[in-house]
Design a protein around this nucleic acid. Sequence first.
RNA 1: UGGGGAAUAGUGUAACGGUAGCACAACUGACUCUGGAUCAGUUAGUUAAGGUUCGAAUCCUUAUUCCCCAGCCA
Length: 573
Amino acid sequence: MGRDFIREAVEGDIAPGGRFAGVKVHTRFPPEPNAYLHIGHAKALWIDYGIAQDFGGLFNLRFDDTNPTREEQEFVDAIIEDVKWVGANWDDRLFFASDYFDAIYAWAIELIKKGKAYVCDLNSDLVTDYRGTLTAPGKDSPYRNRSVEENLDLFDRMRKGEFPDGSRTLRAKIDMAHANLNMRDPVMYRILHAEHHRQGSKWCVYPMYDWAHGFEDSIEGVTHSLCSLEYENHRPLYDWFIDAVNAGRSDDGSDAWGKKIHHPRQIEFARLNLTYTMMSKRRLIELVQAKLVNGFDDPRMPTLAGLRRRGYTPEAIHDFCTRIGINKTYSVVDIGLLEHCLREDLNKRANRVMAVLHPIKVVIDNYPDGQVDEISAINNPEDAAAGSRKTPFTKVLYIEADDFREEPPKGFFRLAPGREVRLRYAYFITCKSVVKDAAGNVTELHCTYDPATLGGDAPDGRKVKATLHWVSAEKALKAEVRLYDHLFTKPDPDDAPQGQSWKDNINPKSMEVLTECYVEPSLATAEKGQKFQFERLGYFCVDLDSAPGQLVFNRTVSLKDSWAKVEKKGQKV
RNA sequence: UGGGGAAUAGUGUAACGGUAGCACAACUGACUCUGGAUCAGUUAGUUAAGGUUCGAAUCCUUAUUCCCCAGCCA
């Protein structure tokens, strides 16, 4: 019960009498190494890997590197790191489509010999012309009926590099009038005099994805080729190619062409879309190249590298992938769900610390000069094992500027002239007076504290309505904090008026850098990537740019802020 | 106007002829040394019209809407 449609199909396939009865379930994640992985890939990855796990099967990581003009080693390395980080385990099954080029080439020769493929001299434009349209049938290439011998000779010379790029292709002989355009004599090989990141200059012809992909899965024994919806129209072609090779072959290998090759089953599902997010690889590359973000691992990017740097955890991503489910319906998931999964995970594991992002100075007038109280603070109320720590309290402190209002609006519980509040784990303080600069801005608060309230409770039982976070002005560490917001201002970045584009919807305030922040001294030894909850503010992690004495934090996600909601509502009225 | 898919609260997803459920969001309230967390509750849905059936989100028919396909990209 509650099983997704793919798992149901797999279950049927491996059941007695099923297509793969008695066979071990085998899946794969087949990225093209031409960009960084994003959260949408994590969904696909988690489906592929999760199904292999659930059925006690095998999972491969395979790079689909059939186009040397856009693939690079940099992306291979980045993808491996990302897949590892997400937590999918391919054991020793890391493969490259390019390692199968010889086998795939041999099958192409076989199809030529079987009269099912031919060398076509039409150039790119003419191939398009001959293909017809969605509603009109195409027409046969004039080269469609070349002899097997001529095709073999020409294809061999294509491989040897005798012809320039684009001058000829090897095509499958299917049906130029087919209602499915993918079946109108698709190109199997194109001539490309390009250096391949693994094959060097060995090849002058490269297989097209459609021709190669089914064989890659076949070679690896993949039972279930899971992919996104746009490949649904291609499935009949993959089946045709495998069937074409298997024609003249038998299970025991006694037929003319030998033994049949494995025929995987492809199942398609809808790719992930997120509100306020762009998932197109092309556009993510564009954002990076146009320097609209600071690289693929910019914490605002939906790339796995970006999410990791932002402070996301693999566990939050797993939870998210599980919750969104699998289907064939176009859908856009609320990014709030991703953030919810993150908060839920971080709430359990991130230690609490105090940090003041927009400091305002507080002087405790009746607190002895030079005195330091080591205040005991709980590291994580959700995890008793996390223990506690000491944090210094002194006469001069910083609190959040937003936690004080000279004229508090209705519903504001925090500090105001004459009001008493609690400083978390420390003392009750009462605001006595305010110091302003020439422009009338509040620069300093003078308060008194009640020594009897050490630890945060009043012996006389009196209550306060607010608890504020604070740091010692003298002992705190100065830090840089980067606040992030959605990269786009609209739930659908493509929602732009006539004449404008998605780029006009980029959020100009997606990053705010605060350089005057103060964090409690216990953070001096925080390591890159380490995650914390800054009490009452949100979850933060130490950025890659951080250095000892030069701490830099990223805001991963804010805490839910019900006061902000109340205040907002008050403004509307 | 060709072919291939898909339609369930605002969003995502269950229900496989038998009480339309869950999660996120939103809104109430309780509790709280984080206006956090937690807990309790509320609002809100089967694209439409016919048909089959004791009974339909589910089966049939028709319509509507949305997505994908005319790279020598993947």
